[in-house]
């Protein structure tokens, strides 16, 4: 007897300008290309972007179906420049899993 009620799916709306803010660029590395075998695509996204937002943005931008979004915050590296300490900016990485049969050619750009 579960007391939980079925949660109502909330439609996240993303405006046309916000799409381009949310998705910065694809990340193309050895590690990310390994994900492409499982129809996963990696993007750098805005730090304040939420998973539903990313999902909506990718779906409307690339006309694909997204099944899951995993994100992580990558902390900027600590660097010294002429002895002065500094840090590189943090960024958020989003691994987007696409529904079977869908794909994005990350190398061609939008």
């Amino acid at each position: 007897m579960s007391r939980g009620r079925p949660r109502k799916a909330v439609e996240t709306k993303v405006s046309a300008e916000r799409i381009y803010e949310v998705i910065r660029r694809p990340i193309i590395t050895e590690k990310s290309t390994r994900g492409s075998e499982h129809s996963q695509v990696t993007f750098e996204v805005a730090l304040n972007a939420s998973k539903p937002e990313i999902k909506a943005a990718v779906e409307s931008l690339f006309k694909v179906k997204v099944t899951a979004v995993n994100t992580l915050r990558q902390k900027g590296k600590f660097k010294r420049f002429k002895g002065r300490p500094g840090t590189r900016s943090d960024y958020k990485k989003a691994m987007v899993t696409l529904e079977e049969g869908h794909s994005i050619d990350v190398t061609t750009g939008v």
Binding site: T29, E30, S32, T107
Partner: peptide, 15 residues
């Protein structure tokens, strides 16, 4: 950038 030499997948290379 992002790949070790010799580990670049052909699709990226072709691009």
């Amino acid at each position: 950038p992002g790949f070790r030499p010799g580990k670049v997948p052909s699709s990226v290379l072709k691009q």
